[in-house]
Design a protein around this nucleic acid. Sequence first.
DNA 1: TAACAATCGGATTGCCCTATCCGTTTTTGG
DNA 2: CCAAAAACGGATAGGGCAATCCGATTGTTA
Lengths: 232, 232
Amino acid sequence: MNPGAQPPDNPATQPLRSDAERNRGRIIAAGRTVFGRDGLNASMASVAREAGVGIATILRHFPAKEDLVAAVFLDRMEAYADAVAVALDDPDPWNGFTGYIEAACAMQAADYGFADVLTMTFPTAKALEKRRNEAYEAMVELINRAKATGRLREDFDPSDLVLIHMANAGVVNACGDAAPDAWRRVVALMIQSLEAPARGPLPASPEHDSLYKAMLRASPAGVTSPEPRKSS
Amino acid sequence: MNPGAQPPDNPATQPLRSDAERNRGRIIAAGRTVFGRDGLNASMASVAREAGVGIATILRHFPAKEDLVAAVFLDRMEAYADAVAVALDDPDPWNGFTGYIEAACAMQAADYGFADVLTMTFPTAKALEKRRNEAYEAMVELINRAKATGRLREDFDPSDLVLIHMANAGVVNACGDAAPDAWRRVVALMIQSLEAPARGPLPASPEHDSLYKAMLRASPAGVTSPEPRKSS
DNA sequence: TAACAATCGGATTGCCCTATCCGTTTTTGG
DNA sequence: CCAAAAACGGATAGGGCAATCCGATTGTTA
């Protein structure tokens, strides 16, 4: 899909040779397929096979695996950001808020790679992180509106969203294709716990810095860390 | 701790030579330390280093990594089962139930290896699975009592406990040492959502078979699969 | 269409893993 | 105290991975 695949911000770079451009598109499409199916731990070789190119070709376009991951998931991250925009348009902020959480978690369930991406951060992938931050800021606004209506508990913190994604990633990763809808039940429970009035106090949220460090924890080396998925 | 480490069921097996017996204990202790700190993906070599023995010595006592994992976590699993017994003793079943969930999740947070063990199953590790099943059955009783008091929502299913552990493992694994208490907040939310009256219906539980398959998914090959923890 | 540069892709390097092999050391029992 | 048996542990096999190298190929431009 999307074979013409323009690198969305490739400004001053001189135009690629036509075959190079074509391969770049194929590689990203292959990455989408393979990472979506097998998670971020899928090997570069498997992506190369799916794309029908050599390993070296991938690594010429994307010097490190992390670069490929960033390129592949940029448009997923945009869809993620769009989902917040949709939620903000909902006349009922609580409805928008819960719908957003469900949609975002569904995205994790539908794409094992993205499930991991949402719980990691890639400081070098500027475009990706820019989108994430946009989504986060819109989310803060959505949260405030939902609190204003009195339906969302007052002690909900935006960082809780990250925790929800971590929890959901845990369920999605552990269940894999064996119980592909199990996450829905967990997310439904989580959402019910967020509705005001709160049934009790909560332990304090983690420091924002701590959570950032946690999201950083995984990335560096093999890019990744996520569960080896048995599927492939 | 527990250096004398008697293999709890080593019946007809002829007695080991004294040094072998000693090493066996050292290896299990080292496994406890290393798996607890680095998760199940810690290498056999790192366990050997910690134990002060050669790699071969470990693999003679435990032919496959899975065997070592089973031996190391048997007593954690017993502590886990004990926690249900304690919960059953609580005169207030709801209190026992919530306390149990907190305790069990705390065990996951305190031992990264155990966090993974609780979301996997090891069919060949009889003693381990026996304990798990005992705990599960006691848990069913606890759940029924808690429902009978009217404090636990009627549609709670024992398998939800597995899902909670998967979610908690996700948080614990993602946060690691960077935000070591973040899981408490998520678990507190989950518990509040379990209190009756339910705030809404839930999607159906996954089939028991599916969940079992999901728990099986990880084990076979490198034993494991869990998150490569960056700590070591 | 020719010749040059850009691009390709398989083989290779280097690292880490589990598990096995085999010469050496330690324990045991007569 | 001295073998024979048991256990040890370093070296090695075998496999997977990301990333690099370099000879072969393909697109481009004149």
